[in-house]
Design a protein around this nucleic acid. Sequence first.
DNA 1: ACGATATCTTGTCAACGACAAGATCTAGGA
DNA 2: TCCTAGATCTTGTCGTTGACAAGATATCGT
Lengths: 192, 192
Amino acid sequence: MATSIPPEVDDIGKQGYHHGDLRRVIMNAAVEAIDASGTGGWSMRELARRAGVSHAAPAHHFGDKEGLFTALATEGYTRFAEVLAAAGDDLLELGVAYVDFAADHRALFEVMFRPELFDETDQCLAAARQAAWRALNEGARGLTETAGASASVAAWSIAHGFAELWNSGTLTPPPDTTAGESARPVLKVLLR
Amino acid sequence: MATSIPPEVDDIGKQGYHHGDLRRVIMNAAVEAIDASGTGGWSMRELARRAGVSHAAPAHHFGDKEGLFTALATEGYTRFAEVLAAAGDDLLELGVAYVDFAADHRALFEVMFRPELFDETDQCLAAARQAAWRALNEGARGLTETAGASASVAAWSIAHGFAELWNSGTLTPPPDTTAGESARPVLKVLLR
DNA sequence: ACGATATCTTGTCAACGACAAGATCTAGGA
DNA sequence: TCCTAGATCTTGTCGTTGACAAGATATCGT
């Protein structure tokens, strides 16, 4: 169960040894598998085969399937926080960035908001999630101060709802349009 | 052999024969299981055991796991359409009804918006979903006409987003409050 | 009453998740 | 350089699962 170790920053070189950076390879394979068939349409052994290792190799890095999802959620929240922080302090652009992240990282986004998949007590995950919420609150602070908490929750809800509807294929958007650009006029209805 | 199990409360009318209305019993058990541990935290055989039937009995009613999810999604869309239609033509109340349905039927709502779980080509499902979308468009028609399609998508997104955030446990609402009542002030920000 | 059909059971198989124990590789100190 | 400790991966195993096939039993139409 000792899966929540800080990431190895010295992975760049890798090579040589047994397989390489198996941890990263398995996580990438999991992202592909989730994109292709959801969180339940694949097996650990399948990821291992795709990576060319034995069926029990991934267990050393993640413990079990929950450990893999915990690692994915942690990475998701970490990158989410970075993207949100980079979006600047304009609330509309924050919303666009929110939706774009969800669409560009469907698998991570899906895992992030499905707590039954991962270990909520994991420290690394909790820290990453905190960072994401902080970035979100930071961007919405102006709205919260001027229009109250409900307005901030409304802004969060509209961005999150559009992202979920988009990713589930419920919306039928114009072709050749990014999720964020499709979301912009919708978000503007609230944030004019 | 089939009677060594405590009587199921769902069996009211039927009785007699092998088990009763097994289809309904399995679907109810599935809803409970999904509420308890998500769409992947249980097995068909577990539902069969809980219903007191053999491990292969459910297959006759649903074919496979995808068939069960298809049945659940169909029931979800059917009841969703009813609830939305009963909410009247006030858009705020429609939003409240949307959120309340999601919270009162977490399992159905979750399956409904996860297309990889069910068979999208199923005719019954398609009809039920059409009915739900019709009820939704009906309720938002006024907004669409006066404020455009983006405004309607915005209203859908805010209700859907609040529902998803609520159900995922991301929001931390005041205790002893229903999802719909918590959503009302948030929806009002858009629909004043 | 009786046969057709729907419903359920038993049996089976490959695949899976999880665990244990052994093999192999890497790193770092003697 | 050698050599040990630990990290990484493999092989082997077990109970469970989803799916299928074939047989048993109850219901229903005629």
